[in-house]
Nucleic acid binder design. Structure first.
Lengths: 229, 229
DNA sequence: AGGCTAGGTTAAGTTATGGTTAAGGCAGCT
DNA sequence: AGCTGCCTTAACCATAACTTAACCTAGCCT
């Protein structure tokens, strides 16, 4: 799913090729990327850029990755950044030293972009699904279940496609409250999606078709609401 | 972590580096740590130290981890200790043997301290050890048997390969709940395996082919679920 | 009434998503 | 080695879902 707030990644490596490859792949996945070619510069860039993730080559001329990591950890804003070391070989000592200075993961070269992407994604993955928002809404004679994407209406189970479900779910979550088409687009489609407001009408139509006319009512000139009473 | 009573962890491994790194990280998290360098010593130390958690390397010179675990389980005070195996590779036999002797979890090297810590914490978060994996699930006209990796469907017995079985088993364990491909990968393949999300499709296909189309349904744009009703 | 507006409805166009098949790789087994 | 079965990937295809546009209807206004 697309986060509204871009995750920032800092890539530090003295080999321009590596930096390029990583940057390209990361940007393709929607991350915001900054780069640095050595440890000294990395610390400077990091303090301004405040990355969420730092990919740090261990072997670098001048100041190595371990030392750099130590310095970065001094910066208060970067205490909680994830640090992933990049190492040429699986050298035991590197591993030990790396974790000592507070690395969160390490990856051995050659780097497989997909594996790296997936590991970064894993860092931000939620622990469990349980802390999610409300799973079920019971309203009127409907039970709207987010877990299964279904509506239960007096025994009958109706499965709705994604957008239709989310539209109904959103309205049902705020009963009796009127939302304009634009507000619905914002909340369900997302802030960065650009579709015509009338699209909402069509989805409303489909939902009404499937669950009945007695739930979503139109407030002319304003928008739609889930109607109790 | 706020502990009334410090949790005691025993680390058993023949490689001093590993022992050190684990000890360091565990102490940093506030655990009380003891160590042993082989299976024989582990049993001795364990009986005095009465750890709550035992991290046990499987491959050790002399007496291996499985055997050691068996002996430790003999000690009455340690019946309820959690045992986590450390294994170099995901060797099938290790996994099976490990759970046979009553291990609670296992972790593959190289060890990521953060992951290990959160797994240890998870052990204590559980309500009770009782929520062990259900062996059999009866759902609709299927009996899904974890022990034999088979499905019984109205008299017919179908054997599924590992991944296919686990996919079905996982979905059946949480009926009506929709899981995205990523969630399925995470739960079945594991957090540290990197395969494409579409791989799930193929396995779904195979399962449907074998048990029929009436069990797993697709929720477009969301994922899959085991469908009752 | 006639014209205007807002929404309803339908259908056609477009895209995204999943289904399906097949090929290659790898591991275990004989 | 050669065979076999499982897993993963890639490619192609069908279609559901979504979007857009066009037309229709109802109500309100002067």
């Amino acid at each position: 799913m697309s986060d509204k707030q871009k995750i920032k990644v800092l890539v530090v490596d003295d080999e321009p090729d590596i930096v390029e490859i990583l940057k390209y792949n990361l940007q393709k996945e929607g991350y915001e990327v900054a780069t640095a070619e050595d440890g000294i510069k990395a610390v400077k860039v990091a303090s301004k850029f405040t990355p969420d993730v730092i990919l740090l080559d261990i072997m670098m001329p001048g100041q190595d990755g371990v030392e750099t990591c130590l310095q970065i950890r001094q910066i208060p804003e970067l205490k909680n950044a994830f640090v992933i070391f990049l190492t040429a070989r699986m050298e035991e000592y590197s591993e030990v030293a790396a974790f000592d200075v507070g690395a969160d993961d390490y990856i051995t070269k050659p780097i497989k972009p997909r594996a790296l992407m997936s590991r970064i994604a894993a860092l931000f993955r939620r622990e469990s699904k349980k802390e999610q928002e409300q799973i079920q809404i019971k309203i009127k004679d409907l039970t709207i279940d987010r877990g299964s994407y279904t509506i239960d209406k007096s025994g009958k189970t109706i499965t709705l496609p994604k957008k239709e479900f989310e539209l109904l779910y959103f309205l049902a979550k705020n009963p009796n409250m009127v939302f304009s088409r634009d507000e619905l687009l914002q909340n369900i489609w997302g802030a960065d999606v650009f579709v015509l407001a009338r699209t909402v009408d069509v989805h409303i139509r489909k939902v009404r078709e499937k669950i009945g006319e007695d739930y979503i009512t139109t407030v002319k000139g304003v928008g739609y609401k889930f109607d109790l009473g």
